[in-house]
Simulated scan of single mutants.
Amino acid sequence: MSSGGPMGWVDPKKYLWLLGLFVPSFPFLAWGLAEATGSGFFWWSGPVFLFGLFPVLDQLIGKDAANPPDSAIAALEEQRYYRWCTYLYLPLQYAGLIAGCWLWAHGGLSVADKLGLALTLGAVGGIGINTAHELGHKTEAHERRLAKVALAQTAYGHFFIEHNRGHHRRVATPEDPASARLGETFWHFFPRSVWGSLRSGWHLEKARLARTGKGPWRASNEVLNAWALTFALFGALLAGFGPEILPYLLIQAVFGFSLLEVVNYLEHYGLLRQRTASGRYERCAPRHSWNSNNVASNLLLYHLQRHSDHHANPTRRYQALRHFDEAPELPSGYATMIVLAYLPPLWRHVMDERVLAHYDGDLTRTNLHPSARARYGAAG
């Protein structure tokens, strides 16, 4: 049997998934290039790679819509090689963070250099949230624990609870803080999603404990123990390298979780699950997620851009996620779309017509932001 499954099928991207480990190498590349050239520009390598290099690669490399055959999926998911591609992200992630703290404290960097390094480390932590996303959906206890470890750097441990139990239940509805509405800019969505997700994660975990007759203030509260990892991590780093690193630790954390939120913004922008005759929302389908098959961003994000299949099969491993022809397609990969999301006029110019086309011009079927009704001419 070959590497992908029966009938001689071979996964053509099998060894390309190792390129995902390029991301946690950002701080080491920045350090090496800055030392070799004497230029502080390279401390900013993380944002440059994310917002400059990867959008270009999305266009140059193009798309791949091929799916593994159904008969190969079970065998493909069982191969432990793919799991190690995600597991190895974590030691590199934290080696980079420790190196960054040493550089902030003892590296003789200017304030501008330290800020660039903070954003570079934040890029690693932000993509690390996606690694946590992949691990946190799995049934194996050790992978779920590793997800919490990956989230500690960005102080976003509640994501582990809210995403799995909240977002996946409410996706593409006005009740979901992580589903962006038509006409809503990223800069309005960002605080709504951050605060709404935090509140949702806490209430979901509080309700889980209440069903067993327990209060929320206990070590078994998964939100609290996830946050405790962040306090322990930051406390250890501050004890080891001094309080002067605290502003940069906070900057990298905020930049890191902002990357998660901008991805949340573009994944379901304007899409709405309709009410059935019973008044309940219809089941989530491929048409409720924006997808992309751009190879560069997919390798960077462990196939996150095949988001429709992820919502249909949350425990399915990234290497087996499939493309659906009926899913709405983004004009480029996530790396490019993140840049557009930061620029609301350009985002609306590119995306609003796609949302309307997806619903044949019927605004009543979109997840329309209330304040945008006048702009789009919606009634009621």
Score class of each variant (00 low, 15 high):
L198M: 14
A228T: 08
A232Q: 00
N221P: 13
K214Y: 12
K206G: 07
T230R: 06
G215Q: 11
R211W: 11
A207Q: 14
K214M: 11
A210K: 11
N221W: 01
T230D: 04
F231H: 00
A210Q: 14
A210R: 13
F190Y: 13
S193R: 03
R208H: 10
S193G: 08
L204G: 02
F190E: 13
W195S: 10
G201F: 00
K214L: 15
L229I: 07
L229N: 00
N225L: 01
L224V: 08
L233M: 07
L233T: 02
S197F: 12
L224P: 03
P191L: 08
E222D: 09
A210I: 12
K214H: 13
G215I: 04
P191E: 10
R218L: 04
S193A: 15
A207Y: 03
K206T: 14
W202N: 06
R211N: 07
S220F: 03
G196D: 02
V223R: 01
H203F: 05
V223L: 03
R218V: 07
N221C: 11
N221D: 03
W202C: 10
A228Q: 06
G196H: 04
A210S: 13
A210Y: 07
A210H: 09
F190Q: 13
L198R: 06
R211F: 07
H203Y: 11
L198W: 14
L233W: 04
H203L: 14
R192F: 03
A219K: 10
